[in-house]
Every structure is written in structure tokens, then in C-alpha cells.
């Protein structure tokens, strides 16, 4: 059986007929994976819906403790990072190595900004004793505002949802760093930019989930 030869480009794995087939496959694989992710978060959203239906007062009351301003800033930060990822893909398609590197770098920075803001939000809450589950131990002042007996459940849901989302952001940063290193080495071109494209898909989903989380958790009136 004939194996790789000069006309079979190096980036095409042996079991694919050509570059297009490999690209199409990778893209489809990522879409299927994203369907997975949506259902994974879907379970959490279901838990959210169920508890909100049971305790509507709890949700309006507890949401007041979340910082709308910083939540909003984070939303803008993430939308910005989606833009830079899209621009990174565009650069790759146009063979602009420098543009690709810069845009990946911007994305990484924005993702880090998101996590830093998230860190300060968490820090502030934990300081007030607003912690998940058995660590729930709010200060008397907070307790006066949060009179609902099931207040801890709202924050359990809040921490689980934002925590898992945060983990996804962290994974995204890891992937972007890997892409950045490969981009520096010149692995990508208009011929082959599959990893950039499918990581971009992943990143858009991570943003999209935040765009749902933000109003559902922060903006309850």
C-alpha cells in the first residue's frame, strides 16, 4: 500500500484522502462535541429552571448580591475575545502570520481578564461567607438581606454554573497558548488552519454560554 508521498501534504494524516476531507472531518467532530457541551450545560440550566420555578422569590432576592457592573464588564470582555478569535481565523486564512499571532495573544489576554474579574467576584463573596453548600456561612448583615431559607441553593447553582464555565475558559486559554506557539512556529497557513478554526468554534460556544449565564444569574428583577 502506498503511503505518504510528496503530493500528500505533511499535515494530512494518512487515513484521509486529502486536506479538505480532513478539514471537514475535524470541523464536524468539533460541532458534534459542541452539541455535547450544550447538553452538558443544558442539565445545569434545567436545574436552574426547576429551582427558579419552585422558589421565584429566592432568585430575585439572591441576584441582588451579584455585581451587575462587573458581570457586565465580563460580558463585554468575552464578546471582545470572540471578535479577536474570529479575526485570528481570518488572518490565518489570509496567510497573515503576524495578525494571527497578535489576535491569539489578544484573545488570551481578554480571557485572562475575564478570569481575574471572576476571581475578585468570588473572593468578595467568599469573604462575606456566601459560599457553596456546607461552606455557607454568611455574615449577619448579608443574612439580613438574604432571609430566604434556601438562599444557599441559589449560590450553589451560581458557583457550579460559573465554576464549570470558568473551567471552560481555562481550557480555552490552554488551547490558545498551544495555538500561539504553533503559530509562532509557522504551522498554519491558508492551506492548513484547522486547529485555529475549530478552537474558534469552541471559544464562541464558551462565550455564548456566558451570554446566557449573565442575564439568568445577574439580571433578575
Amino acid at each position: 500500500m502506498a503511503n505518504h508521498s510528496a503530493t500528500h501534504p505533511a499535515h494530512v494524516q494518512h487515513h484521509f484522502v486529502d486536506s479538505d476531507q480532513q478539514f471537514e472531518s475535524a470541523k464536524m467532530g468539533m460541532w458534534v462535541f459542541l452539541v455535547n457541551e450544550i447538553l452538558f450545560f443544558g442539565g445545569l440550566f434545567t436545574a436552574y429552571i426547576v429551582f427558579r420555578a419552585w422558589y421565584p422569590d429566592l432568585f430575585t432576592q439572591a441576584a441582588q448580591e451579584l455585581n451587575k457592573l462587573w458581570g457586565g464588564v465580563n460580558t463585554i470582555v468575552l464578546i471582545g475575545s470572540s471578535l479577536t478569535v474570529a479575526m485570528a481565523i481570518r488572518s490565518a486564512q489570509k496567510n497573515q502570520k503576524r495578525g494571527l499571532e497578535l489576535n491569539l495573544l489578544f484573545t488570551i489576554i481578554l480571557a485572562c481578564v475575564f478570569l481575574v474579574i471572576k476571581y475578585f467576584e468570588y473572593e468578595h463573596k467568599l469573604h462575606l461567607g456566601i459560599a457553596p453548600g456546607s461552606f455557607w456561612n454568611p455574615t449577619p448583615e448579608i443574612l439580613a438581606e438574604l432571609s430566604h431559607p434556601k438562599a444557599n441553593i441559589f449560590f450553589s447553582i451560581y458557583y457550579v454554573m460559573t465554576g464549570i464555565h470558568g473551567l471552560h475558559v481555562l481550557v480555552g486559554i490552554g488551547l490558545m497558548i498551544w495555538l500561539y506557539i504553533r503559530a509562532r512556529k509557522g504551522h498554519f497557513s491558508s492551506e492548513y488552519y484547522t486547529p485555529v478554526e475549530i478552537t474558534g468554534l469552541y471559544w464562541h460556544l464558551v462565550d455564548l454560554i456566558w451570554i446566557f449565564l449573565f442575564p439568568l444569574l445577574y439580571l433578575i428583577e
Binding site: 429551582f51 457553596p132 453548600g133 456546607s134 434556601k150 441553593i153 450553589s156 447553582i157
Partner: peptide
């Protein structure tokens, strides 16, 4: 639930 009693 087992690790920190999240109450779901």
C-alpha cells in the same frame, strides 16, 4: 452534593 452539600 457529597463533597460540599450543594443541596440540589
Amino acid at each position: 452534593e457529597n463533597i460540599m452539600d450543594i443541596g440540589i
